[in-house]
């Protein structure tokens, strides 16, 4: 994985501290071309990996990228699935069974809900596999070396102790999509325990890591301990603590932690992208135009 990954929250009006800012972003990025322009800005600064949720609009962005294979030769996408709001809204409207019928391809679900037979492990895992395939369709022809499970699902399964399902996702992504599995979580140390209990070593885990301890469940200390003493390929997100920390101070903290393979950030303007990239490279001790 590259040291710096570019995120997508700014494109979809996700702002953790201000509803006004998220509305402004939603207006700025209402055209797909504005998103592509920002991705091109990031690429021009050497940031070639876009980590994004499987939002419907990402399908449009992928279509644009496919049209220019030469231009986007080195470009990678790390899909993060599922786009939870899509399913949450569907569950509100259709119920759990109706949602599965709508989103799982084929007649599989229809036949499952017939009769009162017991559900087998392979049934649940087949649903998971079919959903992964269906979410991956939009990325056809695009390099997706890591595929992530979103925190809302990772952490739900973690609390339900359904560690086997997390492991099944890990193995399936490798087998079927020839990619590494990644996990986004708000509970990194607990998740690492769970994955290790399933025999998964050195997993890719993306979690909030920031100087003020924002969304670092259980406290910053246990995260720092875990990074120092255990084996994982960590991605730090929410490094600015939702905006609570000055960028320079925030990035200095993250750059000096051990075992952080990548830093994920999003920004709307080229100046902000440049500033962040240069600051990370400064604290990493590399030339800023690398």
């Amino acid at each position: 994985m590259e040291r710096i990954l570019f995120g997508d929250n700014q494109f979809f009006a996700v702002n953790h501290i201000s509803d006004e800012k998220s509305r402004a972003q939603s207006i700025k990025f209402r055209e797909d071309s504005a998103i592509v322009k920002t991705l091109d800005d990031a690429r021009s600064l050497g940031v070639n990996t876009f980590m994004c949720t499987t939002h419907d609009r990402i399908a449009n962005i992928c279509a644009i990228i496919r049209q220019e294979p030469e231009k986007y030769r080195d470009f990678k996408i790390f899909p993060c699935m599922p786009y939870a709001h899509k399913y949450a809204n569907a569950v509100t409207e259709l119920g759990i069974a109706g949602t599965l019928k709508q989103y799982v391809p084929g007649n599989f679900i229809g036949s499952m809900f017939k009769g009162g037979m017991a559900f087998l492990s392979k049934d649940y895992l087949s649903i998971m596999e079919l959903l992964v395939d269906s979410e991956m369709k939009m990325f056809r022809g695009i390099n997706t070396p890591v595929i992530f499970l979103q925190n809302v699902i990772t952490d739900l399964l973690l609390g339900l102790r359904a560690y086997e399902v997390l492991a099944a996702f890990y193995h399936y992504v490798k087998r079927k999509h020839n990619a590494e599995a990644g996990f986004i979580t708000m509970n990194m140390p607990k998740l690492l325990d769970a994955l290790e209990s399933q025999g998964i070593e050195n997993p890719i885990i993306c979690s909030s890591i920031n100087k003020v301890g924002f969304r670092m469940s259980g406290g910053k200390e246990i995260y720092e301990e875990t990074l120092k003493n255990r084996k994982l390929r960590a991605i730090a997100m929410q490094v600015l603590g939702g905006g609570a920390i000055a960028p320079k101070e925030a990035l200095e903290y993250v750059c000096e932690l051990p075992n952080i393979e990548s830093i994920l950030f999003g920004a709307s303007s080229k100046a902000n992208i440049q500033n962040t990239v240069e600051t990370i490279r400064h604290f990493d001790g590399a030339p800023s135009n690398a």
Binding site: V152, D155, G218
Partner: peptide, 15 residues
Amino acid sequence: KYITDLTPQVDFYLR
């Protein structure tokens, strides 16, 4: 003031 200044840490986070 922002929520980040006003919210205590939890041990397990979901939603």
